[in-house]
Design a protein around this nucleic acid. Structure first.
Lengths: 113, 113
DNA sequence: TTATCACATGAGCAGTTGTTCATATGTTAA
DNA sequence: TTAACATATGAACAACTGCTCATGTGATAA
């Protein structure tokens, strides 16, 4: 395929020189990918309110305990959530404020206009 | 399947009553899903620096013009980017500051610690 | 008009992903 | 120890997604 399209060399160079590291781009796209599934976002929205254990989460979501556990594993692996053990239970909560901020801004975005 | 797991009724009720609307959860997960692909994030990172047309974008990404166009279509449909026509070219840019903020915070998040 | 450029779109396919089932691990209490 | 509970994990599969190819659409210039 010939892509002879418009190429503004100057702009392309500017962008190329100021783009974040490729690794960083991949890393943040992974974070967004994790937040980009309705099930996981439901989990995160819940954890933004209160720490919960797996059973709590699966009880008000239409997903098996196993399904919730699988998703929490992904979220934890990428430092989106953290855990705290208390006897037989493991309580999940949001890793830090960045995550909450990101979700808040996104909520603002969809509500405006 | 019996999920007799721990269910802290009180916590579940609190969360249930304070959870965002289901529609909102789905909507913001869609936004994150769009940002959650390396190719689209590369596009967004570029547009955060400067408005660009399709040809510009495909020239420094390892993707065909068609591929870029398909992704831009998705991004525009969900108000992540906006367009401006200038002659035969169509310039794409970031829709608003929310998107830039979200990306910035995510970058901060992965860099810390 | 016609030719060319810039971009959009539909089809098709390979690769990925979210879910459930079955089972394993680890903790607590008897 | 054994039983019961809470969570984790591996396998399997249907559904989804991002890519390319081929083609279509719309704007400009001759």
């Amino acid at each position: 395929m010939k892509d002879l399209c418009c190429v503004n060399e100057e702009n392309v160079t500017i962008v190329h020189n100021n783009l974040p590291e490729e690794d960083d781009i991949v890393d943040i796209s992974e974070i967004f990918n994790l937040l980009g599934d309705p099930t996981r976002m439901r989990i995160m929205a819940a954890l933004c309110i209160k720490e919960l254990c797996v059973g709590d989460l699966s009880s008000f979501m239409e997903i098996s305990q196993s399904g919730v556990s699988h998703q929490l594993r992904l979220l934890k692996k990428n430092r989106i959530v953290k855990t705290r053990r208390e006897g037989k239970n493991i309580y999940y909560s949001v890793e830090d404020d960045h995550i909450k901020q990101i979700i808040d801004i996104a909520l603002t975005h969809i509500h405006e206009k």
